[in-house]
Design a protein around this nucleic acid. Structure first.
Lengths: 340, 340
DNA sequence: TCGTGCCGTGAACGCGCTCTCACGGGCCTC
DNA sequence: GAGGCCCGTGAGAGCGCGTTCACGGCACGA
């Protein structure tokens, strides 16, 4: 039988800091929270006492007394947690983290499947976090609205589909798709297809719309559309389908680099040279793009910036700032490589 | 001036649950924490009251009163946060999360560069988490030891280099490298090179050792060694180097799929056919392996299982279980595809 | 000189929960 | 029948901090 020794956490308490600094707990608290009405002398004394004792305030006590959590949640709403492997997610995560460092705010990572939404909402409702970042929303997921209803500030990464007005930050997917199409047109291609992303995500729809507009400008038919989710396999299937329907296809805009991987495989297998026979433009400018064969021309989106911006927006709201933009669109840019 | 209304979090308190259930706070607490000495009747009453009121206990208060955080940290110790994009990290994260669901334990994600170690240690020292998972340790990083010193249970993902005895979970990299080498030998290859991983990580060293042993068994010289970090670019450089040194190389074991991407590129550029001229075996069996051209024969490691096991080990320690293995090695297996 | 602010400070209460302790009733044992 | 033990329960004391409130000192104007 192991005796689990229940004992107090080590380390000094605010009390000891106060004693060493020769002031009261209140004053120490004021210094820690950077409040006014503390003399320079007291402030210094407290600071030296803190560094001397290596004092670090107890987060739980702060949360309890201050009735705020000093933490935000990053909620990944995905069936299989597949997104986690996505460079997109990694970039967002890095951005969020970058924006959080220095502030005393922790990042709780929560994965949630629709079945678990009730639990999640209940959990978040009782004040465990001060706000939430939502990533990888599908379709008309009610989660963001439910979180808003319980009064939790929320910012989505990627435009949420469906009604309601959830603040979001997204890349300018429409312009990205448009640029891709224009680029292919400028190359003299005339049978331009697209492998679009899933219809239940704005990223899929908006990139498709941009592509449509681009072909429209050039008075080209926008009939060659296939759909894929964010896997190479589905991309392969989509490209096969496209080739069957239009053997003369000479260009394709693919809604994500990872999908383009499958597209390239099929093109290769079917004896089509890239870019000579078929030009390919991807989306994301992930690591995959530069290492693909041939290296992929792609639409770059700055996912890390997306993470930073989401966090900035959320923290702004938490700080009670006003004049915050409800939503933000981040620019994309075309990166030319060998495939188009 | 925005009035930030400081007010109590919404939702019921334990008190109200107690009143509705007709018992005392103590009993409610016992039910919540699944403790014995509660009658079935009381238990039921409390449960219905909880669901009725949608009660969810305040985490901060629990932590404060129970002097435990109900949270663990996942610490990623990396220079640029580059790991985040790694499928390896994603897998681990998924595993950790899977193991955590159901228990009432939150996951704090912390990135830490060596410069920030002091802050990190200070933070963790004051009881914000009950334990820590360490990932992507380089060289003889003092972080795990420092965390042990402050009494924080720690489990590393990947064998930590350097002295000290930190519990860890790792894939059996040695056997993986050995199997890869044996496989290449069994193919009749005789000039077998390796692109090893970084020398400051056990994954790099152990896979290299395994490869060495495999060649030794076959009485083949183990002289063709180049080193790369986990990027395609460094892999390309390493392979170029290898080809310059030994144009007759007919096989190469690459310590990671992502490195193999660069290797394949160079091989292709230099007019070597894979696998006819040069057989390639990767490591990880990540998404990259199956979508590479040609699809990569690779040593599979189950990173999700690694994440789960790390978490299981840590939670076991937190629960005071004894007889826990200090460290664990997870099996690897060779996945045959086209490249070897 | 006395009032009127404002700045700086400390005492003490409370955040919501866990945990210790004490107590009573039922059952078994001698 | 008395003593003991175990189960089930509740009262209440903190956990470590933020925050309110009151108070004293000082500068200023009247």
């Amino acid at each position: 039988m192991t005796e689990i020794d229940r004992q107090r956490r080590p380390g000094p308490r605010i009390e000891e800091v106060a004693r060493l600094a020769g002031v009261s707990k209140s004053t120490v608290s004021r210094v820690i929270n950077d409040e006014p009405y503390v003399s320079a002398k007291a402030r210094d004394a407290v600071h030296t006492a803190i560094t001397h004792l290596k004092y670090s305030p107890n987060q739980a006590a702060r949360s309890l007394a201050g009735s705020k959590a000093n933490a935000i949640a990053l909620i990944v709403s995905e069936q299989s947690g597949r997104v986690l492997g996505d460079p997109f997610f990694a970039g967002v995560l890095r951005g969020v983290h970058a924006e959080l460092t220095g502030r005393q705010i922790q990042l709780l990572l929560m994965l949630s499947q629709p079945e678990d939404h009730d639990d999640l909402v209940g959990y978040l409702a009782s004040g465990h976090v001060d706000g939430a970042l939502l990533v990888s929303l599908h379709g008309d997921d009610p989660l963001p609205r439910r979180l808003q209803e319980i009064g939790l500030p929320v910012v989505a990464g990627g435009r949420p589909l469906g009604s309601g007005s959830i603040p979001f930050v997204d890349s300018d997917n429409f312009t990205g798709g448009l640029d891709a199409a224009r680029h292919l047109v400028s190359l003299g291609r005339t049978r331009i297809a697209t492998v679009a992303g899933p219809r239940d995500m704005a990223a899929g729809l908006d990139r498709l719309s941009g592509w449509r507009r681009g072909l429209g400008e050039a008075r080209l038919p926008a009939d060659l559309v296939a759909e894929a989710d964010f896997t190479p396999e589905s991309g392969a299937r989509a490209m096969s389908d496209l080739l069957d329907r239009a053997p003369d296809v000479d260009a394709v805009f693919v809604a994500a680099d990872i999908i383009a991987l499958g597209v390239l495989q099929v093109l290769h297998a079917r004896g089509k040279r890239v870019p000579e026979d078929v030009a390919v433009v991807g989306f994301d400018d992930s690591l995959l793009a530069s290492t693909a064969t041939p290296p992929l021309t792609t639409v770059r989106q700055d996912v890390e910036q997306l993470g930073r911006t989401m966090t900035w927006r959320l923290l702004g709201e938490l700080a009670g700032e006003d004049g915050l933009p409800p939503s933000l669109l981040l620019p994309t840019s075309l990166v030319r490589r060998a495939s188009a």
